[in-house]
Design a protein around this nucleic acid. Sequence first.
DNA 1: GTACTTGCAAACGTTTTGCGTGAAG
DNA 2: CTTCACGCAAAACGTTTGCAAGTAC
Lengths: 148, 148
Amino acid sequence: MTSRLEALCMEKGLKMTGQRRVISQVLSEADDHPDVEEVHRRAVQIDPRISIATVYRTMRLLEDAQVIERVDLGDGRARYEEATADHHHHLIDTRTGRIIEFASPELEAMKERIAHELGYKIVGHRLEIYGVPLDDAADCARDEEERP
Amino acid sequence: MTSRLEALCMEKGLKMTGQRRVISQVLSEADDHPDVEEVHRRAVQIDPRISIATVYRTMRLLEDAQVIERVDLGDGRARYEEATADHHHHLIDTRTGRIIEFASPELEAMKERIAHELGYKIVGHRLEIYGVPLDDAADCARDEEERP
DNA sequence: GTACTTGCAAACGTTTTGCGTGAAG
DNA sequence: CTTCACGCAAAACGTTTGCAAGTAC
């Protein structure tokens, strides 16, 4: 089967090998923000001959082709998500590590305005919010709950 | 002489040794965002017996005590600045690497509102804008077009 | 043949750590 | 004495790369 990302890669003129197809499939099926090791772990379950070096090389390839985007969530390793047309940001639940994506046109506009006032044109930006659930913030007794 | 940061450290009950005093002095005098190697370079000029390991250890100590703040500017190493009461962010000039600090109460409010709507209480956040000077932006666009 | 991709292991740059020495109370 | 800080070198970490072998055309 051809994955969504594989189709995108071919549109961009990338040569699709077996390994690249598997990695594309893994990334297509991911609805989280896996790091390279996690992508490798999942890829190996489909084809055990894939090395971590190939995953690193392929991730860079896909990033350069703007098929995926690197997300730096401040945990010291690169995480990835599919590239999207609309800009969005991440709210990271510091209790569970869960990542919530959000977008805000108002915020985009404000950030554009701030840069302009400083005499700059934006070429990129990054916003991350770290938070705890409002429910838990009041009631901290329930730390050891099961993860969904 | 007692530096600003050294006084702060003592308030927090940190034991101040010769090395820590020198590092505090270096950080007090810095008006940029030095990385650990840079701090070490400057510290060694005051006292050549300071090792990089001590700088790393002291930076973490000061960070934990909230005397300094780690800033991740996406260049793969940790940079630092004095901790401030007011939240501010960074605009990074991608041409020169120059870092401009800015604050926006409106932005703080909006970000607070967004988190609340998602059911979260903010415990931290980070915004970085990467940009090019408006004057150069025209040249930049032309360069891009000329490329094949 | 050429041109590219892969796996492996070694190297890389940043950061941490184990350990023996040293300084301070 | 005990306790903590230090310097050094080695290790750990995520990532990149040199190289020889493999694949596709």
